[in-house]
Write a protein that binds this DNA or RNA. Structure first.
Length: 146
DNA sequence: GCCAACGTTGGC
DNA sequence: GCCAACGTTGGC
C-alpha cells in the first residue's frame, strides 16, 4: 500500500497504531482492498518522495467497510455520487507492525525484477495503483533484501 | 460508443 | 519542474 510520507508515513502509522486507509478513489485499488482479510500482511510503501520504496510492514486490521470520507462534504475525498445506501468506496484499517531494518528503495527493488516476476505490479510499466497485491513468494524475496 | 480534453500519479 | 502513463469527464 502506497502513501506519500509527507501526508502519512510509516512513522505516523507507528504513532497512531491503527489507521483507516481513507481516500482510495481508484476502482482497481478499491477492489484489491475488498479482497483483504484481517491479518493479511501489508508492505508500506513511500511514494512521491526523495527515496521511494518499502519502509515498513503493517497488517490488515479490519474487514472492508465504506470509507466515511466519501460522505463528508468538507473532505477532499468527498464523492457526491456516493450515498450511504450505495457507497462507492471501501477501505480497511491498517495496523503498524514494524519498520524495516532499512528501507528498500524502488531503485534497488528494480534490480530484482527478474526474481520478482513479470506479474509484480509495482514494477509494471505505467503502474500507478496505490493498492496492489503481492504474492507470498514476492513478499519473501523482498524482505530477504532487508 | 468514441474520443479529445483534462486531471492525477509518481518517478526522475 | 518535467513528463509519461493512465483514468475520468463530457460533448457529440
Amino acid at each position: 500500500m502506497k502513501s506519500e510520507p509527507g501526508d502519512f508515513s510509516i512513522d505516523d502509522l507507528q504513532r497512531v497504531g491503527t489507521e483507516p486507509w481513507t481516500g482510495v478513489r481508484n476502482y482497481q485499488a478499491r477492489n484489491f482492498m475488498r479482497q483483504m482479510q484481517v491479518g493479511d500482511g501489508v508492505l508500506f510503501y513511500h511514494s512521491n518522495c526523495e527515496v521511494p520504496g518499502v519502509y515498513g510492514i503493517a497488517e490488515v486490521a479490519s474487514t472492508p467497510y465504506p470509507d466515511p470520507t466519501q460522505f463528508q462534504k468538507t473532505s477532499k475525498y468527498y464523492d457526491p455520487k456516493a450515498t450511504h445506501e450505495q457507497p462507492r468506496w471501501e477501505l480497511v484499517d491498517v495496523q503498524f507492525s514494524r519498520k524495516l531494518r532499512r528501507p528498500l528503495p524502488l531503485s534497488e527493488i528494480r534490480g530484482h525484477a527478474d526474481a520478482l516476476g513479470e506479474e509484480f505490479e509495482l514494477l509494471r510499466k505505467g503502474s500507478r495503483l496505490s493498492v496492489m497485491p503481492v504474492t507470498g513468494a514476492q513478499w519473501k524475496r523482498l524482505l530477504s533484501l532487508e
